[in-house]
Design a protein around this nucleic acid. Structure first.
Lengths: 250, 250
DNA sequence: CGCTAGTTTGATCCGGGTCAATGCTGGTGG
DNA sequence: CCACCAGCATTGACCCGGATCAAACTAGCG
């Protein structure tokens, strides 16, 4: 199966009709996630220069954007949707090392090959930059390089947060911490909200937290029974974040 | 208790007597870990410029180098010894998010504050750079900036590796993976070796892998009983890395 | 309407946590 | 040189939470 299976490509400007309806691909000036992304470090002029090497891509649910150990020939900026980032252990099980939200930057590993695989959880759009041209651009623009480094540092912090979750012994603490983390990350994109979307399946949550699918389900329902959350299709309501924080602390 | 308690400071050149005996502090030209560190990206001229803002420090065992959430006023390059990097969860337990080996670079978080605490496991020496001056230097030298970014990317990969270990369900898989990882990291410093040093205590290993001290001990001895390793004071011998790899796979 | 993939829920088992006792080692002082 | 002590490591006994297996249930969707 090809890596870029069921991915549609568009030139950045091609589908731009200054519509914001579903399926529209915004050009840089209308980019909905610019303030969240590394592009926030660019001025109008520089953005136009960067846009010249960008191509927008749509990725259908379950389609793969990039694959672990393949040559990194492109880097990406997520503009909408959600990706799961995962590695496969030699033993064959999947560890989800993170989720990529709108505004997140992807695909610059230490060596020449991607460090994980990425596939769309829901319909997703990304800006694709050829790696060489992107690095050349970064080299010419110090502030942008700085933004890249900040993004890497944020990734490290998120990785450490996830370690804290993984090392929690009790399942309810893991789930509580997970829900709060998801709330925080969606808040960056959509603003604070009562309902926390969980577009990923139970299997994904389990592979992220190191729990079985059964325990994820059971624990969510236990938290619901205790009145801390309310389970809705593809998401939860969080009634009492404070109390949930207490649970996350263990 | 003060953060820099029981830490001795030395000007970079002060203790340099071109000795390499215990207690000697090498100047940059004699730096034992330069090829492993970010300084490898510098030529002789640039190294001298960077050395001017560096100060060597010795850190005694159990002394703290930096503390989570404190303002990051300096960054560090480890030249000898070993540090444990950890965060404390709100629940009060310690998660070791990594160990810093000779050649490792420390202390550039996303925001202005350190993301974790670092303390010496054994007697350790580091190069200390004032943060501002260091960033200014990096800004002037593109290749060095690049090296910094590579270091960050390697940190991310290591964090993902650790997630794989943490998410392993069986303790013997975690321990096996841990031993192999330690072997690899020491190999960068000392060259490949039959004996893998484990200067950290069982509690550290447990807090790194999300295991209790009892399980760490039991599991090590089970692996020893099965002939895969031999336990020595402050370390292990690895007889059969292949077989151990199999165990790590789960 | 029936199929499929995902989710919930129950029953059972086992690995690792916890608690506690014992053993070991290196450092200190008589 | 040896007795003692403190900190760490080892080992045993017991118990609990989450994995596993399996069955029932639900929601999309052709």
């Amino acid at each position: 199966m090809s890596v870029h299976a069921s991915i549609e490509r568009h030139a950045a400007g091609a589908a731009a009709k200054s519509r914001t309806g579903p399926g529209a691909l915004a050009r840089c000036p209308d980019c909905p996630v610019r303030p969240l992304s590394i592009c926030a470090a660019l001025d109008c002029q520089e953005r136009m220069e960067l846009e010249r090497i960008a191509r927008q891509m749509r990725i259908l649910p379950r389609a793969m954007l990039l694959m672990q150990d393949m040559r990194s020939d492109a880097v990406f900026n997520v503009t909408a949707g959600l990706l799961r980032l995962y590695r496969l252990s030699p033993g064959g099980q999947r560890q989800i090392v993170g989720f990529a939200f709108p505004g997140d930057f992807l695909g610059l590993p230490a060596d020449e090959r991607y460090g994980f695989s990425a596939e769309a959880v829901i319909a997703t759009t990304v800006c694709r930059f050829p790696r060489r041209a992107f690095l050349a651009f970064a080299d010419r623009h110090g502030r942008f390089s700085q933004a890249l480094h900040d993004a890497a540092a944020r990734t490290i912090t998120l990785a450490h947060d996830q370690m804290m979750q993984l090392s929690q012994r009790r399942a309810d603490a893991k789930i509580a911490a997970f829900l709060l983390a998801m709330r925080t990350r969606w808040a960056r994109v959509q603003g604070a909200s009562f309902t926390v979307p969980l577009p990923m399946g139970r299997q994904d949550i389990g592979d992220y937290l190191g729990l079985s699918i059964a325990t994820v389900s059971r624990t969510l329902h236990r938290l619901a029974r205790e009145g801390l959350i309310h389970i809705v299709p593809k998401g939860v309501h969080i009634f009492d974040p404070q109390h949930l924080k207490q649970r996350a602390a263990g």
